[in-house]
Every structure is written in C-alpha cells, then in structure tokens.
Computed example of a mutant assay.
Amino acid sequence: MPRVTLQTIADRVGVSRMTVSNAFSRPDQLSPELRQRILDAAQELGYAGPDPTARALAKGTTGTIGILLTDSLRYAFTDLVAGGFLGAIADELAPTGLAITLLTSAGTGDLIPARDVAMDGALVYSCDPTSPAVSWLHRRRLPLVFVDQAPVDGYACVNVADRDGARAAAQHLIDLGHRRIAYAVVGAHGPFGLLTDAATPVEGYASVQRRLGWDDVLTPAGIHPPVIREPFERVDDVRRDARELLSRPDRPTAVLCFSDVTALGVRQAAADLGLRVPEDLSLVGFDDGPIATQIQPGLTTVRQDVEEKGRSAAALLNAALRLSPGEAPHMVLPATLVVRGSTGPAPAEGARTPV
C-alpha cells in the first residue's frame, strides 16, 4: 500500500502541501470548512497525522512535561495521596494539551529517563536533591518546579508548611497529657526498624520538616521519643515494628506518624495487641487522605491540600514554559491539624490495657 503523505492529501483536495500542513499544526490559518475538507480526505486516505518527532523538531518543543519521582512508578498508582497530587496536575494541564511522562530517578541499561526522555520541562516531586536524575535535568537547562523539596535558587517551588503542622500535632498530644510519645517515620537510608535513639537521622525535605516540628514541642518538654523507621510507607513493615514497640513495658501512649499510611500500620499493630484507640494509644497521622476517615475511629491528622499542591505546581511550570526566566516564586501551602477520634487523654498508669 503506497505511503500517504501531506502531498497525497494536497493532491486529493486540490490545495498546496503547506495548506494541508496548516490544517494539522496551525488550524487558525484556515477556514473551518477548508480544514474539515482536508481532515476528511486525510481520514479517507488513512493518514495517521504528522510524525510527532518531526513536528517536535520543527517547533522546538515536545508538548510533554516530565514528573520525576524518587520511588518506583508503582507508587504513583498505589499511593492515594500521590494519586491525588498527580490527578490535580493532569486537570490543570488538560486545557494546555500538554502530555505527562512519569520518570523514575533510576535508569535501566543505557536509558536514563531524566537525560534521554524528550520533554519541555519537569516537576521534581519529593526527590533526593543529590540524585543524578536531578543533576541531569539541571544540565539540560529545562524549566523546573520543585515540589516537597528544599527551595532551589532560580527555580519555582511548592511546599507545605510541614513543620507548622507537625508542631501543632505534637502540641495536641502534650495538651492531652501524653509524655510517652513515639515517632513513626520514613527514610530512604538505614538504619531501619525500631530505634531507641531519638537522634536517628532523617532525610527527605518533608520528613525533616515534620521531625523538626515534633522536636520543637517535645524536646523542650524533655521527651526523647523512640523511633520506628522504615524505607517505604509499607503498612506491613510498620505494623511489624510497631508491635515490638507497643509490646514494651514502657510502651508509648501516643505515636506521631509521618503519614496516614504509617498511622494505619501502627493502628493495626495496636489491634493485634488488644490495645484500644484512643483509650490506650493515641495516633496522629499526616496528609488527611482518604484513609483518615476510612479507619475507625477516624484519624486525627494534619491536612495538606494535595490537589492545590498539584494545581499550583502545574500552573508554575506552565508559566515557566511560556515566559522568559525571571522571578521564581516559592509557595508554601498551609498544613492544618484535624482532630478526630484517634486521640484522647493519656491513660492513667494503672489503667492501661495489658498486652
């Protein structure tokens, strides 16, 4: 079957090749009637449209933005908070026609996505700033927006007031009389498990900020919490180490958790041991995602507006794509404590349910 080209369509309609090209790439240059005649002829001839690679070379743009994730791409489809964030980006970009490509920070063989995938700009979402992938994006001089990361000079960024929200969570427990408080955190590097050293290092911008907020309240009160630390937000791993923590004679009466998912793991461990929430154990999460209202009692948590974060990040990147380099705004969205049934007064020493 002979190959159908722009010239084939031009000959069929009786117009120039440039006119056919304009029907696909510059429709405003043609009358609606003429453009429709060209499109009808193209469909009849089985023309698939201009080659995307050739169009990108001609225009100097790809029509695609990347979203760089530290974790595997599976995280984008299984984590409800990440899903809400990515969905808001898609909604914000829909009117622009820009496509989205998800990128991992790790390469496979000779392919390094941050170096090799064609894109006009990228959102860097909660990534290790020393990652080679981030370095490649810088070297390509792409417009970038950083999300849930330390601000980078010359680039727009969107963060949540993690430290303020965490501080409010810790103060809530102190006001309820709790003094035996533990942390459940997530970190990319070890050590992992149940750790008794409250000075355990934490990495990741959001993790660091939340830990600082908790410490702002607990350290002056002389409280040095044991820590459950996991490499990922895996409920089963948190559940396992939380059982060990909650089986100790000096078990905590409250746990401050990096996320709602982390809190779910601790909640399941408490149920395994016959501990009641909040009578024996108070829990505070972070995110206020769907999990917070699905578990019973409802989870006290710190709310961040992940959809607003996604919309803001996409809008900033879209602006960076259209405008010359200039002011790079640093946005900080609020984080607000939402009190539900998972927190209550600290139990009296003699009234705690035995394990």
Rank of each mutant, 00 (worst) to 15 (best):
A269K: 04
D288P: 02
V261D: 11
V255W: 08
L245Q: 06
Q294D: 10
P297I: 13
G265I: 01
Q296A: 15
D260S: 11
D241W: 13
A254V: 04
V238S: 03
G289P: 08
D272V: 06
D236C: 01
D280G: 03
P225R: 08
L281D: 05
S247C: 06
F258C: 10
D250I: 09
L245W: 08
P231V: 04
R240P: 00
F258L: 11
A254S: 12
V255D: 05
E244D: 11
L264I: 14
I295N: 00
F258K: 00
L299P: 01
P231I: 06
P252S: 05
R267A: 15
V255S: 03
V235R: 13
V261N: 10
F286R: 02
R234N: 12
T300I: 00
D288I: 10
R251G: 09
T301P: 02
Q296Y: 15
G265W: 11
V227L: 02
I228Q: 11
A269D: 09
T262H: 01
L245N: 03
F258D: 14
P278E: 11
D236A: 15
S247P: 04
P252M: 05
L246W: 03
P290D: 14
T253E: 12
P252L: 06
D260E: 07
L299I: 02
Q296C: 06
P226C: 09
G289Y: 00
I291H: 01
Q296I: 09
P249K: 10
A269N: 04
S282V: 00
V238Q: 01
S282G: 12
D250N: 14
P225E: 09
G274D: 06
L256C: 06
I228L: 15
P225A: 10
L283E: 09
P290G: 01
E233S: 14
P226M: 13
A254P: 10
D288V: 10
D241H: 15
D272G: 02
I223S: 04
P290E: 14
E233F: 12
V284A: 12
R267C: 07
I228R: 08
L283C: 12
P252C: 00
D260H: 09
V266M: 02
G265A: 02
S282K: 07
L246S: 04
V261L: 15
V238K: 00
S282N: 11
A254H: 13
D288H: 06
L264K: 03
L281I: 08
L299Y: 02
R239C: 07
D241K: 01
V284F: 04
L256W: 12
G285T: 13
V277L: 10
R240Y: 12
L275D: 03
D236T: 07
R243I: 02
Q268F: 05
P252W: 03
V227W: 09
R240I: 06
H224Y: 10
S259Y: 05
G274P: 11
A271N: 02
I223R: 05
L281G: 07
L245M: 13
I228W: 08
P225N: 03
L299D: 01
V266G: 07
R240T: 12
T253L: 08
P297T: 09
